[in-house]
């Protein structure tokens, strides 16, 4: 049995729903914040996810930081040595999707040479009539970047856990591979 700890950085433009997603995950869907509050610093969400078919688990330390450009300098410090990345866009905003490559680059720069397992999350699927980013388009880009792709609605409590469970599996896998490499050294 092993309990892993992972620093998860939550990235994406402001107002795409990063905080809503993190809070839904934290509270198992009990808490959807109806009014928007701009995240100015960072919120830390701590939550443990069990890995199916094992006795292992991953404890996430989710750094939910401000997406507004104004606070971007602070991110360099907050994002030091990330273990996994949760990249969020708003399916009704093409711009938020286009900016994902910028966010990904910024996050990878912090991982200093190590791999950074990640997921791409299209949020606000409840606003179906205003959709501006097609699933296939997001899927294609995510695949090219080695990210797993999800769509969620934090508001409708849809699929909000899946991206984090996927990250937990990826991180657990990475641990096992690394330990095998340690074993092969001697």
């Amino acid at each position: 049995m092993v309990k892993l700890a992972a620093k998860c950085i939550l990235a994406g433009d402001s107002t795409v729903g990063k905080t809503a997603l993190a809070q839904m995950f934290r509270t198992d869907g009990a808490h959807f914040q109806k009014n928007y509050t701009l995240t100015t610093g960072v919120d830390l969400v701590v939550k443990t996810v069990a890995i199916p078919d094992t006795e292992d688990s991953v404890e996430f330390f989710i750094f939910d930081s401000a997406g507004k450009e104004l606070f971007s300098e602070m991110l360099d410090k907050l994002w030091v040595s990330p273990n996994v990345l949760c990249l969020v866009y708003d399916v009704t905003s093409e711009q938020s999707f286009n900016n994902c490559s910028k966010w990904l680059e910024k996050a990878r720069a912090q991982a200093s040479g190590t791999s950074l397992p990640g997921v791409l999350v299209g949020n606000k699927t409840d606003l179906a009539g205003r959709r501006a980013v097609e699933s296939a388009q997001a899927q294609a880009w995510a695949q090219g970047q080695g990210l797993e792709c999800f769509e969620t609605s934090a508001k409708e409590m849809e699929n909000y856990e899946a991206p984090f469970h996927c990250l937990a599996r990826q991180f657990h896998q990475l641990y096992q591979e690394t330990v095998e490499a340690f074993q092969a050294l001697v």
Binding site: M1, V2, K3, L4, A5, E59, F61, S81, T178, V179
Partner: peptide, 26 residues
């Protein structure tokens, strides 16, 4: 950190084949 399979006692057992692993975040 502790992984039952790779406990910290491995550091001082005199055998470099056994080891202790960290399990995330420094």
């Amino acid at each position: 950190s502790s992984d039952e399979k790779h406990p910290p006692e491995n550091i001082i057992d005199g055998n470099p084949e056994t080891f202790w692993t960290t399990t995330g975040m420094f």
